[in-house]
Amino acid sequence: MTFDPTPPHEPRRPPPRSALGPRQLVGAILVLLPVVLLLGGLSRCSFAPGGPEIDPSAGPAVDAPALLRDAARLAPFAVRIPAVPPGWRSNAVDRATVAGGPGTAVRAGYVTGAGRYLELVQSDAPEEALVRDVAGTVPPPTGVVDVGGTRWVVYGGDEALWVADVAGVRLLVTGSAGEDEFRTLAEATLAGETLPAGTPPPR
């Protein structure tokens, strides 16, 4: 008969931490990594049913009227300066050639007071070429809206596009905002100052 010194009901003790090998440490890290990533992602994200939101006070800000006046000096068409509402911020203005077709585009990006993004594109390019340049394709039109007596053709896609022809210049509005903010930018563009082609910037 042999004597077992270990009591029958004593729980088995885990090995000391110093006894853990590299395999056990790697396994523990792989278990914890998804939890850390999940918690980090949740702390940075917010739910936005209408599309992505941007902090209106964050990011770069540019003087859109001044930059649009400068663009009008070189643009071969009349350039409008939108009279956007207080609380809207412009974050970019540029001028470029329309890809895949003749024409120049003057672009101005805006962050609305609600934190949505909109872009206004003014161009002398044909409507189809301008839509393809902005959207990468020509989605089917989904309807027409009237803003201030001006007819805007609405195109579907990942983001809606509104296009109007005003005195031979194509005006295009696109972005993540809702219809009300699309209308606001369309109205602000139509009501804004119009600079004839080649207008020199003020001294």
Rank of each mutant, 00 (worst) to 15 (best):
A186I: 08
P15V: 15
A58Q: 13
A160Y: 06
L67E: 12
T189W: 03
A105N: 01
V144I: 11
L74E: 15
A191M: 06
A125W: 03
R170Q: 14
R89Q: 01
G59A: 11
I29Y: 12
P126T: 02
E179C: 07
S123Q: 03
G168E: 03
E127L: 07
A83V: 06
L68G: 00
G192R: 04
E119P: 02
P196W: 08
D158H: 07
T2A: 10
G59Q: 11
E119C: 00
V169K: 05
D63K: 09
L32E: 10
A58F: 07
G100K: 00
T184L: 01
T104C: 00
A66M: 00
D180Q: 10
L25H: 15
P202Q: 08
G113F: 04
A186S: 13
V36I: 15
F77I: 04
G40F: 05
G100E: 00
P196Y: 05
G143S: 06
P86H: 13
A188C: 11
A177V: 14
L68E: 04
L190G: 09
G113K: 12
Y155R: 05
I81L: 11
S57I: 12
T104Y: 10
L190S: 04
S46C: 03
L130F: 14
A48T: 14
L172G: 00
R95S: 12
R17F: 03
I81T: 01
L37Y: 10
D165S: 11
A188V: 02
T104N: 04
P126L: 02
P7I: 12
V163T: 14
A167F: 12
Y117L: 14
V166E: 03
P56S: 13
P34Q: 07
L32D: 07
G113R: 11
G103D: 06
A108H: 01
E181R: 13
S43T: 12
R12P: 10
A64V: 10
V26I: 06
S46P: 01
A71P: 02
L120K: 03
G156S: 08
W88N: 07
A61T: 10
D146I: 07
G87M: 05
L161T: 10
V134D: 12
I29K: 02
P52A: 12
H9L: 15
G115I: 02
L171S: 04
F47T: 14
L67N: 09
V144F: 10
R116M: 02
E10Y: 14
L130R: 05
V153Q: 15
A64D: 03
E193L: 00
V138T: 13
L37W: 06
T2D: 09
A108K: 03
L185A: 09
L37V: 09
P49I: 09
G143D: 09
A78T: 15
S123N: 00
E119A: 11
G192Y: 08
G101I: 13
P16R: 01
A64L: 07
A114F: 00
P56V: 08
L130W: 09
P60K: 04
Y117W: 15
V134K: 09
P52H: 14
G143Q: 05
R80N: 02
V173C: 08
A99F: 04
F47Y: 14
P82L: 02
G50V: 00
V98S: 05
P14D: 10
G100T: 00
G27S: 13
E187S: 15
P202C: 08
P49E: 05
G59T: 03
A64F: 02
